[in-house]
């Protein structure tokens, strides 16, 4: 439920480790898929792809109608009902498949909306500066500090039976602030770079500088902010459905948990009623978080958990490599006394 603070923001100030024009023109083609080569990002993307696939085909491949009642009341998972059945004999596997679409649509829609808002507000504030910057920064800080979820709950509860689109709108309009803050900080540091100054000196228009000089260098941050917002949006939507505020007539994983909770699934020992939905949510969240780590590590290589750090030297000792150090691997014939803490006994 929390948005884990991205390390990107913390790397920004003055480090210049990121957003530097990386690829030489001739090698651009080879480097294009480097991001996918990161194991974490690749795993996340594959899982996300599977979810997207089910969001599209879910309602067609579902073995039963998720609303259809049957005589198999509260059955444990079996060959006929993979995830068991509810108190009305509805097939839970079908409900999960059908619910995937609503979850993904709300998550992506809210993510896109919040990302657009954060770009508009964050980049404008960072690039223009002065009074507009003060105002926009104050606005995003206010939205950041006000607890979003209670606000979303209250606003949604005003509307009778809120639809998916409306829920996505409400979430998107309340969750752009984090991205705007990060984007503003990075735009501030980009604004005074030489190539931007050069573009300004040659008389490029402001919108052109922002679109073609600044924005491409913000891609990683925008992507990471988008993924973070999607996580938050999915969690919020499921929460709203779970406490029964948004429409309970359409299926999403929160609705399943809502019925499970309401029908005392716990007391009846019907674990299959709420475990699959929760795992589906957690797996989606993990996939998105993995993509975000991939972006973080892609941007700031120090964060990679780089392979082996214990290295055996020629004379049989082991040395632990550490960031910022270059251990001297002395030849066996002339051992150099290494600092004590670096040598394993």
């Amino acid at each position: 439920m929390t948005i884990s603070p991205s390390s990107i923001e913390q790397v920004i100030p003055g480090q210049g480790a990121m957003a530097q024009p990386s690829a030489a023109p001739g090698r651009a083609k080879r480097r294009r898929f480097r991001f996918v080569a990161n194991a974490k990002a690749a795993t996340g993307l594959v899982i996300l792809g599977v979810y997207c696939l089910f969001a599209v085909i879910g309602p067609w491949v579902a073995p039963y109608d998720p609303d259809a009642r049957s005589a198999d009341v509260l059955q444990a998972p079996s060959a006929r009902h993979w995830f068991g059945t509810t108190h009305l004999g509805q097939d839970i596997f079908s409900q999960i498949l059908v619910g995937a679409r609503s979850v993904m649509v709300v998550g992506l829609l809210a993510g896109v909306l919040a990302t657009i808002l954060s770009i508009l507000i964050g980049v404008t504030a960072g690039y223009i500066g002065g009074v507009p910057d003060e105002g926009l920064s104050a606005l995003s800080n206010v939205f950041l500090v006000i607890p979003a979820l209670p606000l979303i709950i209250i606003v949604t509860s005003i509307v009778e039976q809120a639809s998916d689109t409306l829920v996505a709108l409400i979430i998107g309009l309340t969750s752009w602030a984090w991205g705007a803050r990060v984007l503003r900080a990075q735009t501030l540091s980009l604004r005074r770079r030489d190539y931007v100054e050069a573009a300004r000196a040659t008389g490029e228009r402001t919108w052109r500088i922002i679109l073609f000089e600044i924005l491409p260098n913000l891609t990683a941050i925008i992507a990471s902010g988008f993924v973070g917002t999607v996580i938050f949006a999915v969690m919020s939507e499921i929460t709203l459905a779970f406490i029964g505020i948004s429409s309970i007539s359409s299926w999403n994983w929160g609705t399943i948990l809502f019925w499970a909770q309401g029908q005392q699934a716990l007391a009846q020992g019907a674990w299959w009623w709420f475990v699959p939905a929760g795992l589906a949510i957690a797996l989606l969240g993990t996939a998105l978080a993995l993509i975000n780590f991939g972006i973080d590590e892609f941007v700031s290589p120090r964060l990679r958990s780089a392979g082996k750090t214990r290295i055996r030297t020629a004379d049989g000792r082991t040395v632990r490599m550490r960031v910022g150090f270059t251990p001297v691997l002395a030849p066996a014939s002339r051992p150099v006394p290494a600092p004590r803490e670096e040598v394993a006994p």
Partner: peptide
């Protein structure tokens, strides 16, 4: 960094992706 602790990081990711309320449901069960 680089020791076995790094191996635990994906597990913490998974834990933080679980909605609080669902973990509560499991704990009750």
């Amino acid at each position: 960094r680089g020791s076995w602790v790094d191996g635990l990081l994906p597990a913490t990711t998974f834990l933080s992706s679980i909605p609080y309320f669902w973990l509560g449901l499991v704990a009750i069960a």
